[in-house]
Write a protein that binds this DNA or RNA. Structure first.
Length: 426
RNA sequence: GGAGAGGUGGCCGAGUGGUUGAAGGCGCACGCUUGGAAAGCGUGUUUAGGGGAAACUCUAACGAGGGUUCGAAUCCCUCUCUCUCCGCCA
């Protein structure tokens, strides 16, 4: 959500920046709406002020025993007209807010202009794609063969885009969660939180999923509850409608949660394997910072996420997203893409964004140092998507016989050095 | 799920339908006082929106939303949240 005042005064400059996202603002309509909104407000408030005065007059006269029938009637008529106008204000105002709420964040000046993912800029790489003296298999072949992944039975108990992890497959997922949480909380200074996995509409509005992206979410019937699509929602909303003491900033949280996404509109994309599931696990990093520190904190957050991949010895590249490829609420985003030999390609495993005050304004999260309170900047990034990390390990550490070597850093968590075929699934 | 109690400013806590945006207290800020501090005294201390260069001014907000009334923190209805007891339950 944009700031109305700033939006109004810098309309042309903002429109220009938004154009780089491929968005054309209806400037005339906006100005027209703004004008009618303000004149409606002025008119109805003036009327209301008059009516308030009349009411006071009535009160005074009645205490003196004067008959006020006529005055009361006038006041009533005035009140009715004021209410009518107030309704008009409400109509214009809600149309205005709707419009404002539907406008994405303005890209930071350091974001490259571009139309699609093709225009993203690689800012660094780590490691070299491993060379195999055999044909590396995709995880959807390796997993079932090892008896650690079962798609068919998952489809039976639930449906498409669900999976069962078995044996060391399940343990690997759990080991990764623990490894990531330990690394972030013990080494990177994040406070671990375990939030609700179900949230209300206000929270989704606060982080920007609602009202625009309801179709991407699962809603619980007959309630105002939704399954979270990411830990970003409950964790960012921890401080909704609160003012933090400036001394506490930056606040850094890491959280493990399952995530649920309807994946409406992604039919045919990543249909094989566990790359794109309705339910997946993620460890998320969330920060609340002072405005002047948010970009430095974004770089650190991205580095914290990358650190997980470095420790696991997984090759990756970090992409700075161009204006056309960024998410709705973001002002700047880095995607970390891990190398997947089974698909001979890089695949997004983390998305680290600075939302500046865009979410904070919607969620009303402030900080106070001096006299005046100010909106915080919010940031988040995956640290990392656990399912895709699982895939990266299985595919990068696969051996000729179909077994999977366990990365050094993970062995204390898994109590195994190699994942070999077992008869877990039959 | 059943029964009861309650949601007022940063906090505590008043509030007979009518100059109550809200007494009083605490806290906080500034000033006076002091060698310095404490105490004391004085002033100030919500947010959002409209108008204004500014001083300032108007509107709205006492959990949320409706209603009654010339006028609602105060009366009525619905919802919601918190607490206590009972039931059920991991």
């Amino acid at each position: 959500m944009h700031d109305l005042g700033a939006f109004r005064t810098n309309l042309d400059a903002i429109a220009e920046r938004l154009a780089t996202r491929g968005l054309t603002l209806p400037l005339d309509e906006f100005r027209e709406l703004d004008k009618s909104r303000r004149s409606a407000i002025t008119e109805s408030e003036q009327l209301k002020a008059e009516q308030n005065n009349l009411s006071k007059e009535v009160g005074r006269l009645r205490r003196e025993g004067v008959n006020t029938d006529e005055l009361q009637q006038r006041s009533r008529q005035m009140g009715d007209r004021a209410a009518e106008l107030a309704k008009q204000v409400e109509t214009v105002d809600s149309r205005f807010r709707e419009m404002l709420a539907g406008i994405p964040n303005v890209p930071h000046e350091s974001v490259p202009t571009g139309k699609s993912a093709d225009d993203n800029v690689c800012v660094r790489t780590f490691g070299e794609p491993a060379k195999f003296d055999f044909e590396p298999q995709p995880h959807w072949d390796l997993g079932p063969a090892l008896g650690i992944l079962d798609f068919d039975r998952a489809a039976k108990i639930t449906g498409a885009r669900f999976a069962i992890y078995m044996g060391l497959g399940a343990k690997l997922e759990r080991a990764l969660i623990n490894f990531m949480l330990d690394t972030h909380s013990n080494l990177h200074g994040y406070t671990e939180v375990l939030p609700p996995f179900v949230v209300n509409s206000d929270s989704l509005y606060g982080t920007g999923q609602l009202p625009k992206f309801a179709e991407d979410l699962f809603k619980l019937e007959k309630t105002d509850y939704w399954l979270i699509p990411t830990a970003e929602v409950p964790v960012t909303n921890i401080y909704r409608d609160e003012t933090l003491d400036v001394e506490r900033l930056p606040v850094k949280f890491c959280a493990y949660t399952p995530c649920f996404r309807s994946e409406a509109g992604s039919y045919g994309r990543d249909v094989r394997g566990i790359i794109r599931q309705h339910q997946f696990q993620k460890v998320e990093l969330v920060k609340f910072t002072k405005p002047e520190e948010s970009y430095q904190e974004l770089d650190r957050l991205t580095d914290d996420a990358e650190d997980i991949l470095r420790r696991l010895g997984l090759p990756f590249r970090t992409m700075l997203l161009c204006t056309g490829d960024m998410g709705f609420s973001s002002a700047k985003t880095y995607d970390i893409e891990v190398w997947l030999p089974g698909q001979n390609n890089f695949k997004e495993i983390s998305s680290c964004s600075n939302f500046e005050s865009f979410q904070a304004r919607r969620a009303n999260i402030r900080f106070k140092g001096g006299k005046k309170s100010e909106l915080v900047h919010t940031l988040n990034g995956s640290g990392l998507a656990v399912g895709r990390t699982w895939v990266a390990i299985v595919e990068n550490y696969q051996q000729k016989d179909g077994s999977v070597l366990v990365p050094e850093a993970l062995r204390p968590y898994l109590n195994a050095e190699v994942i070999t075929a077992t008869a877990q699934l039959k």
